[in-house]
């Protein structure tokens, strides 16, 4: 069963100038997916998350989340999903210490006594907050507040989690451990995740599928690897190969390498070195076959670099082509 199944969702905000925030959004998300919701500022990502978590009523469309009707059973949806807001200034009670904040929420999510205590300790440890457990939220750094906000939301062990820019303000270690946490939740516990981020590499690393929004409309919704291929961009894989004699070099036949379009080669700066460039429209498919070829030919692979298609390219293409800026 689909965890999220919505059709034709639209939302316009009343106010000074009526903003069309979303228009005709369809989404079917299977259990265990990690959906990356991408798009420029103001694309409607947060609006969609608010609608899906029952915090905002859409003006058009219908659907279900966790089997509950979006219109009539929003209360049940709200009770059953977790959400991390895009700013850690949400939801932290400055009157309570870091630990007391979590202790307050535990019974709300049905965690009591020893179980609650263990879970809180586990989350504090995983998010590197042990040392700040008894500090006041006003006295911890920005990244530490973000970690607290994450810990608070993940206290509830819900099957559907919305993460709106969860790694904002985290340092490299923090980003790594939060990404690991997301992977673990998903892989070990089957939690379905909807994630927004402006760090394209993060979406690529974590998400099984990507939905690209711009100006409230869905521009693309595909599995991550297909989204990358869908642009049809051709990118070079550059290799430095050492052979005994550069003159002996025979390049690979592009037709034998999946995704490859053409090859070019020339001598390198040192004797016996060949610089080979393979142009590919699917570097993920070409790379293993190319490596296979190199090793099979007996050349020594001295250097390799792929100018692959990234979600940054997707971003530039889609928001550029649609005239967002």
């Amino acid at each position: 069963m689909a965890v999220i199944d919505i059709q034709g969702i639209g939302k316009w905000y009343p106010g000074r100038r009526r903003t069309v925030a979303l228009e005709g959004v369809d989404l079917r998300l299977a259990e265990g997916a990690i959906l990356g919701l991408l798009g420029p500022n103001g694309a409607g990502k947060t609006t969609l998350i608010k609608i899906l978590s029952g915090l905002l009523v859409p003006d058009t469309g219908r659907g279900t989340v966790l089997g509950y009707d979006l219109m009539r059973q929003a209360r049940h949806i709200r009770a059953a999903v977790s959400l991390v807001a895009p700013t850690a200034d949400v939801g932290i009670d400055n009157n309570l210490t870091v630990r007391q904040n979590l202790v307050f929420w535990a019974p709300v999510y049905g965690l009591f006594g020893e179980i609650a205590r263990r879970r809180i300790d586990e989350l504090l440890a995983r998010l590197g907050l042990e040392g700040k457990a008894d500090a006041w939220p006003m006295h911890i750094s920005a990244g530490q507040r973000q970690r607290l906000a994450l810990a608070r939301s993940l206290l509830a062990e819900n099957a559907l989690v919305f993460l709106d820019e969860p790694t904002n303000k985290l340092d490299a270690e923090g980003i790594r451990s939060v990404r690991q946490l997301i992977t673990d939740l998903n892989a070990r516990h089957g939690v379905t995740v909807v994630l927004t981020t402006h760090v394209m590499e993060e979406a690529e690393e974590l998400c099984s599928e990507i939905m690209f929004l711009a100006q409230g409309r869905v521009r693309r919704h595909l599995p991550t690897d297909e989204v990358l291929r869908s642009l049809g961009l051709v990118r070079p894989i550059r290799l430095a190969l050492d052979s005994r004699e550069a003159a002996d070099f025979t390049p690979p036949d592009p037709r034998t390498l999946r995704g490859a379009e053409r090859v070019a080669w020339g001598p390198g700066d040192i004797r016996g070195r060949v610089l080979l460039t393979v142009w590919s429209r699917d570097t993920v498919a070409t790379t293993p076959e190319l490596i296979e070829w190199v090793l099979h030919q007996g050349y020594r692979l001295a250097g390799m670099e792929t100018e692959r298609v990234t979600l940054e390219d997707v971003f530039a293409t889609l928001s550029g082509a649609e005239g967002v800026h």
Binding site: V3, E31, G32, L66, A80, P107, E157, A159, H189, V191
Partner: peptide, 24 residues
């Protein structure tokens, strides 16, 4: 973690949980 879509037994525990929440 309950399976997705499986509504948790909301009603049975809800009163106890509300009271626990008030206590919190």
């Amino acid at each position: 973690v309950p399976a997705a879509g499986e509504p948790r037994d909301v009603r049975v525990h809800s009163l106890i949980r509300e009271i626990a929440t008030l206590w919190a």
